[in-house]
């Protein structure tokens, strides 16, 4: 049972890596939009495998559906069917930066607690309280939902305001165009 979980995990990660590499090599915007669709399908599947079902839900809706449509709307507004010119002036510098950043992240990961370790600091503070009490206190079966919408309600409100503002911006950009078309 554990073996199949690892297998699925690593296969999906491998697909993710391959997709990311191809996206970075492609110079056509449509192709990258399409491949981003696959990328977010894979990401969300990985979230499910890692038990983060709520994040997977969001990723499925936003990544696969909304962001694809938004990117296509943006493409249809800019109408850029041209290939993007690639500037490759100093690959050595970029490679050096990437390797240094990767190495720093790898060193950072070494200090992290084991994956799903019940004794990790993050799992010892308020998490046990939420897990045991939230159902009786808030009457919602999903703990993540009650943490986000109730215990951390103000924080979530702030996030929602940010997203709302972004949404208004997007609508203002996209809707102005269709309004003009209706008058034609």
């Amino acid at each position: 049972m554990i073996a199949i979980e690892f297998l699925v995990n690593f296969t999906l990660l491998g697909f993710l890596l391959a997709t990311a590499l191809v996206i970075s090599r492609t110079n056509r915007l449509f192709q990258s939009v399409m491949l981003f669709g696959i990328y977010s399908l894979l990401t969300a599947a990985l979230f499910v495998v890692l038990d983060a079902v709520d994040v997977a839900f969001t990723e499925a809706a936003v990544g696969t559906c909304i962001s694809t449509i938004l990117m296509l709307s943006a493409l249809s507004l800019t109408g850029s069917r041209r290939e993007v010119a690639m500037h490759r002036k100093s690959p050595a510098l970029a490679l050096g930066v990437s390797i240094a950043l990767g190495a720093a992240l790898a060193v950072g990961i070494m200090d992290m607690p084991e994956f799903a370790d019940p004794n990790a600091p993050a799992n010892l503070h308020v998490a046990p309280y939420y897990l045991t009490e939230s159902v009786s206190e808030i009457d919602i079966p999903n703990v993540v939902t009650s943490v986000l919408a109730s215990y951390r309600g103000y924080d979530t409100l702030g996030e929602v305001v940010v997203i709302f503002t972004a949404g208004i911006g997007v609508i203002a950009l996209l809707a102005g165009r269709t309004g003009k078309r209706d008058e034609d």
């Binding site: 669709g37 399908l41 696969t64 559906c65 694809t68 449509i69 296509l72 709307s73 493409l75």
Partner: peptide
């Protein structure tokens, strides 16, 4: 959710390619 999103995204992409825009 996936099955739903997949269908909607495919339709949006095809509409884009057929008509050039989503509106």
């Amino acid at each position: 959710v996936y099955a739903l999103c997949n269908f909607i995204a495919t339709m949006a992409i095809l509409k884009y390619f057929e008509y050039g825009d989503l509106g």
